[in-house]
Amino acid sequence: MMELVCPAGTPAALRTAVEAGAHAVYCGFADETNARNFPGLNFSRAEMAEGVAHAHARGAKVLVAINTFPRAGDADLWHRAIDDAAGAGADAVILADMGLLDYARRAQPQLRRHLSVQAAASNADAINFYAREFGVKRVVLPRVLTVAEIDEINREITVETEAFVFGGLCVMAEGRCSLSSWTTGLSPNMNGVCSPASHVSYETTPEGQDARLGGVLIHRTPAGGPAPYPTICKGAFTSPDGAGGRQTGHIFEDPVSLDATFLIPMLQKAGVRALKIEGRQRSRAYVAQVVRTFRAAVEAADRGAEMPVGALAKLTEGQASTTGSYAKIWR
C-alpha cells in the first residue's frame, strides 16, 4: 500500500491525523526553519518528542520539515533543528538546502533524509545527484510533472518518490517564488512565510471584502462570495484589456486546490511510494476529514476498487479543485 503522508500544524492535529489513518505525519518546529511559520502554529521541542512518541505507539511515522533555506553564515538555528529532530526520535527530516543535507548526513547519519519539494528536483538527473551526494532516500516531487513524466523518472532513479495529491497549489516552480517577498520583504523560502499574517489585512466594504498584502490590494471578494488565500498568485487584478477598456481577473492562477484522488491508481502504477496531503496551516477538522478520505482511497487503490471522488469540495480554496499538472491539458 502507498504511504499516506499527512500534515499537522499542532500536536492536536498530529493526534487527529494518526487517529484518522495517517501512515506518516509531517510537521515542523515553531520557527523559520519550516515553510509554515505562522502564528500559533507548529511544535516546541517537547511537543515534538511527545508527538513522535504518540505516533510511534500507534504505528505511524513522524517526518520533520526543516525545508527553508538558511541565511549564509547563519545556519545554527537550522542545524539545531536537525539535531533536535533526531533527538526527538523523528523517522526522517525533510530538507531542501544542500548545506543542510550535507550537515544532516555528517551530524546525524542514522537519520533518514527526504528531499523537500522546495528543492524543486524535477528530473532524474537532479534526483540522482541528491541521492548520490547526500544519501537522500525519498524525493517529494514538484507539482509540475505529469503522471507519465513521473513514471519515466521512477524508471531512472533508485530512491522513493512522494507526490502531492491534495491541498493548496503553488503556481511557481516549487521554492522559486518571489511574489510574496517582493511585497512584504519576508521570504517563503527563507523565513517560512508566504503571505505572512503580519502583512495581511482585510477590510469589509459595502461591496464585500478587500484583501491587501503589504498594503497592496490583491483581491476584492464580493459579499458572501468564495474567498481565496491572500496570496498574490491567487489575486485578481485589473489591467488594460487591449481594446481601450479594463479587465479584472486572475493573472497568475485561479484560486483552486489540488485534488488528484482519481489519479491515485495511476500514480501507484507509476511507482510513486507515498502520497502527500498539503495543509499544515489547516485545522484538525480539515486533517480528520481529508486523511480519512485519502486513507480510504489508498486502501481502495490497493484493492483495485474505484476511487471516491468529490468528497472534499467544501474544504478546497475557491471551492474548486484541479488535477494540476498531473493531467496537463491545453487551455
Binding site: 482585510y202 469589509t204 471578494t221 468564495p226 474567498a227 481565496p228 485545522s283 467544501k314 478546497t316 471551492q319
Partner: peptide
C-alpha cells in the same frame, strides 16, 4: 468545521 473552509465559503470573515 475548518476555519479556512468557512473563510473560503464566505461564512466567516475577518478584518484587522
Amino acid at each position: 468545521s475548518d476555519g479556512d473552509a468557512l473563510f473560503f465559503s464566505g461564512e466567516l470573515s475577518i478584518s484587522g
